[in-house]
C-alpha cells in the first residue's frame, strides 16, 4: 500500500473510532478499550514473531506497565492520565532495554522459555508482596486528565479517546518501522540468520530493537488496561496470559501491523460467545478455534483481508504489489 494511502486510512480509522465512541453503550466502550490495550501488547508479540522470535513472557511487560501506573498513583501521587501512561512507557523502556541485553542471545524455543521464566519470577515476587495486595492486587482510582477531575463516565470516555489515539500512533510508527531497513532485516532474520549476518547486519541488534519495541507496546497496553480496569494483580504476569497474547497474534496474523487489532477483537468475541454458550465447555471452543486457524489460516485472519484486497487490486491495475506476508510454515533450509 502506498505510504500516503496508509496514512490517510490510519487517520480516518482513528477518527472514526473516536466518533463512534460517543454513541457506544458502556460495555462496548470498555470492551473496545480492553481490546485496544491487549492489541498493543500483541503488536509487540507480532513484531517479534516477524523476526522468528516468540515471547512466551510478554505478560512481564504487560504487568510492569500496569504496576507502573498503579504504583505511580499509589506512591508517587500521580493521577494524570498522560503522566501515568508516560510512567508505563518509561518502565517498559528501562526494563526492556536491560533485559534485552540478556534476551538478544536467545532464539526459538529457548527465547520462549526464558521469557516465560522471567515473567513467572515477577509473578512470584508480586505474589509475595503483601503491601501490594499480593495476588489480590490493588485498586487504581480513575485518572484525572490535564489536571481536571472528571466523572466516572467522562473519565472512561477520556481513556477511550486516548486509547484510540495511542493505537493510531502505534500503528503508524509500527508501519514505519516495518518498512524501514531495520524492519525488513527482521523478516530476513526469520528466514535465515546466517545470511543476514553475511549481509553485514548484526542479528542481535535487530532482535534487541524488536524486543524494545515489544516491551514498550506491552507496558503501554498494560498501563492502559490498568486504567480502564481500575484494578491490577500479578496474574497479568502469569504464563497463561502470555500464552493468550501469542494465541491472538496467530489468530490475527503477523503480516500487517494492524492485524493484531483485528485478532484481538475476534478473540474477545469468540471468548465471550463461548462463555455464554457453554459456561462449562468454553475451553473446547477456544481450543478448536485455535487448531482450526493454524490448519486452515496459517497466516491468520488478516490473510483473508489481504487476499480480498489482492483480488480487488488485480482487477483495477495490472501489477499487484504483494504485501510481504509471513507464512508460519517452516521456511526452507
Amino acid at each position: 500500500m502506498p505510504e500516503k494511502n496508509f496514512n490517510i486510512t490510519i487517520i480516518a480509522a482513528t477518527l472514526l473510532l473516536i466518533t463512534v465512541g460517543f454513541i457506544l453503550p458502556g460495555w462496548l466502550t470498555f470492551l473496545t478499550i480492553s481490546i485496544l490495550a491487549k492489541a498493543l501488547v500483541v503488536v509487540g508479540v507480532a513484531v517479534l514473531m516477524r523476526g522468528g522470535i516468540v515471547s512466551f513472557g510478554q505478560g512481564l511487560y504487560y504487568c510492569i506497565g500496569a504496576y507502573a501506573v498503579g504504583l505511580g498513583g499509589k506512591f508517587l501521587g500521580i493521577t494524570d492520565l498522560l503522566g501515568l501512561m508516560f510512567l508505563a512507557l518509561v518502565a517498559g523502556l528501562v526494563s526492556g532495554s536491560l533485559l534485552g541485553l540478556l534476551m538478544k542471545r536467545y532464539r526459538e524455543i529457548f527465547f520462549a522459555m526464558f521469557s516465560l521464566a522471567l515473567s513467572m519470577i515477577l509473578f512470584g515476587v508480586l505474589s509475595k508482596s503483601q503491601l501490594l495486595g499480593s495476588t489480590d492486587g490493588f485498586t487504581i482510582v480513575k485518572p484525572t486528565i490535564l489536571g481536571a477531575t472528571l466523572s466516572t463516565d467522562n473519565a472512561n470516555h477520556a481513556i477511550y479517546i486516548f486509547a484510540c489515539l495511542l493505537s493510531g500512533i502505534v500503528i503508524w510508527l509500527g508501519q514505519r518501522y516495518l518498512r524501514s531497513p531495520m524492519g525488513f532485516a527482521g523478516e530476513a532474520l526469520r528466514d535465515n540468520e546466517v545470511r543476514v549476518e553475511y549481509l553485514g547486519v548484526a542479528p542481535e541488534t535487530i532482535i534487541y530493537t524488536k524486543y524494545l519495541i515489544a516491551s514498550v507496546t506491552a507496558s503501554l497496553g498494560g498501563g492502559l488496561m490498568a486504567l480502564t480496569l481500575g484494578h491490577i494483580g500479578p496474574e497479568m504476569a502469569y504464563w497463561s496470559q502470555s500464552g493468550e497474547f501469542i494465541f491472538i497474534a496467530l489468530l490475527g496474523g503477523t503480516s500487517h501491523i494492524a492485524a493484531p487489532f483485528v485478532g484481538t477483537a475476534v478473540f474477545e468475541f469468540i471468548r465471550t460467545f463461548a462463555l455464554e454458550l457453554a459456561p462449562n465447555a468454553w475451553q473446547i471452543i477456544l481450543g478448536v478455534v485455535l487448531i482450526f486457524i493454524i490448519i486452515f489460516f496459517p497466516s491468520g485472519i488478516w490473510s483473508l483481508f489481504s487476499s480480498l484486497k489482492e483480488k480487488l487490486r488485480s482487477g483495477e491495475s495490472g501489477s499487484p504489489s504483494k504485501t510481504p506476508s509471513v507464512d508460519l510454515k517452516k521456511g526452507d533450509s
Partner: peptide
C-alpha cells in the same frame, strides 16, 4: 444467567459488564 469466574481479571470485568449492560 451463569458466567465462569475462571478467566483473567480483565475478562472477569468484561464479563461482568456484559452481564449488566448487555
Amino acid at each position: 444467567v451463569y458466567s465462569d469466574e475462571a478467566v483473567d481479571s480483565a475478562a472477569r470485568v468484561t464479563e461482568y459488564r456484559n452481564l449488566v449492560q448487555r
